[in-house]
Design a protein around this nucleic acid. Structure first.
Lengths: 204, 204
DNA sequence: ACCTGAACACCGTTCAAGT
DNA sequence: ACCTGAACACCGTTCAAGT
């Protein structure tokens, strides 16, 4: 009947899915686990520490080395896994955004990506910077993807009146987020390819 | 002596700079403006609405059409402006992250970028998706850039023991954030260039 | 029109005391 | 070792009433 650290983590995830990041309070979490709010402080020193643990938990497995293959394919695998992990719980991206790189699993994912790029021929520093760029893109994309924003599309549609470009923007937001994600990712991978093959497109 | 909407916005920005997003409360803002907390609700319907107004305020001017020139130069200008706007106040990126695209100034910046890319020859849909990708990168980057994370570098350094790759990652985080930003941005621009010139690097 | 005063229903965190 | 009970110092928001 006693609470273990893992139980608290699972309870926090469930509550996150149910009530979102703003609705996740120590009191509600306590109630869900049949414990007083204060009791949770025996397991975690603060709410912040608990949230960081949940964030790190979310990213477990992301850093695993992808199967052998072309570097771009392996990098795609890594980016897809990261997105899926962030999407696996409500407000997951916002949650992770506040602990980026700090948590072990995030930096391990960066490490894995670095290895892939260095194997492809990129120097270590470029490999590290590239992984930051990819990580920031994935994070930014999923934050927006998960933002409910009440009446997001309605607001944009209202602005879009009589402006063809804004109508295109609104349509792009309504489009399948998976395809949008893929497009931006392909963009970055093409940019990386230029560096891996050691020339800029302007050269040709 | 009476409070105008603009005074509340400026007060909120100042308090943001002083105490950060988590320290910005209606009660403290009221105190700073010599008003009861409840009085603020005459000017804004909710704290959320006030924060959205501050976010939109932050991005004023970003959407202005950059001077004529090559498309990549103009896109760089836009991205730099966006980053600077987000960095202009403490926790600016986190603040904007929660209202992305929704606010008029954000979508206007997207519109400006679309025009630049369409002038360069990209079809409207690709132009829109590209601007989303660039926007997400800038947002993700600046969020991380602004995250204090207490002892970020110390934590990473602790993990980095006995792992050469992690040491490179830690060094990359310690590096000049402006240069890191530039690197990732150049990456994306090269990826866009491939689409503007109408071929993939693999073709050659 | 613009704000006060006071209340309502919450928060995170601490800590003696219980078991 | 693990949790309760109760308190402390806060929150956002509402709303009658004042000016």
């Amino acid at each position: 009947m006693q609470l273990r650290r893992a139980d608290v983590l699972r309870g926090a995830r469930d509550l996150l899915d149910a009530d979102g990041l703003d609705g996740l309070t120590m009191r509600k979490l306590g109630a869900a686990l049949n414990v007083q709010a204060g009791g949770l402080y025996w397991h975690f020193p603060s709410k912040q520490a608990l949230l960081e643990a949940v964030a790190d938990d979310l990213l477990a497995g992301v850093a695993e080395t992808p199967p052998a293959g072309p570097w771009d394919q392996r990098l795609l695998t890594l980016a897809h896994r990261l997105r899926q992990a962030l999407l696996s719980v409500r407000d997951g991206a916002r949650l992770v955004a506040e602990t980026f790189v700090t948590e072990p699993n995030t930096s391990m994912a960066g490490r894995t990506g670095m290895r892939i790029l260095m194997d492809a021929g990129l120097p270590a520093e470029q490999a590290a910077w590239t992984m930051f760029a990819v990580g920031h893109y994935v994070l930014g994309h999923t934050i927006e993807e998960q933002s409910t924003g009440a009446d997001r599309e309605a607001k944009l549609a209202a602005q879009a009146e009589a402006d063809a470009d804004l109508r295109e923007l609104a349509a792009a937001i309504g489009a399948d987020p998976g395809r949008r994600f893929e497009f931006g990712l392909a963009l970055m991978i093409d940019g990386i390819r230029v560096r891996v093959s050691g020339r800029t497109p302007a050269d040709s």
